[in-house]
Amino acid sequence: MGLLTNLKDSISRAASTLFSEEDPKRIGIYGPPNAGKTTLANRIARDWTGDAVGPESHIPHETRRARRKENVEIERDGKKVTIDIVDTPGVTTKVDYTEFLEHDMEKDDAVRRSREATEGVAEAMHWLREDVDGVIYVLDATEDPFTQVNTMLIGIIESQELPVLILANKIDLEEASVKRIRNAFPQHETTPLSALEGDNMDEVYDRIAEYFG
């Protein structure tokens, strides 16, 4: 009767999802290009669902469409927190195809990538306005956080009164400075991690449960 039990279980699970009072919160992963947003999204998705969200690359603007991973169940202290992750394209105020030429890309491909990246930024901003219940803001800890994009995005997120978790990524790199990010956004808690190496992910999950549970 294992099959029947499984079927019954999955029906009741579907029903509880359908009729639960609260849908999973939709958490947008935001940040500048190449901060490690997709690496983090993949890390979270793999840890809790076994699947990945999208391809990672060291070339900026690899993610040019928002990608969703739904019903990611994170268990913390015996409690389950269910979220939908939205991995968004990196936000920037300038997109220039010549940047991609350095990565051995043909001009046509670079121009197309640039156009798609720009559409991606528009999409990311649109999601921020309409469709997210909380934000994981990912910063590359080796880069200066005092940028117009970061200031503006954090400002918008605050004005929406969305819960925001700031992550200082790439702490596996020698030149990373978590302190610099803490100083940049003293009104928020900053959690260090390396999404690539999986360093400090336990704390990240604690924070996710705390902020978005």
Partner: peptide
């Protein structure tokens, strides 16, 4: 073509 400036706000 291929170079864009975006007004995020």
């Amino acid at each position: 073509p291929g170079q864009y400036e975006l007004n995020l706000m």
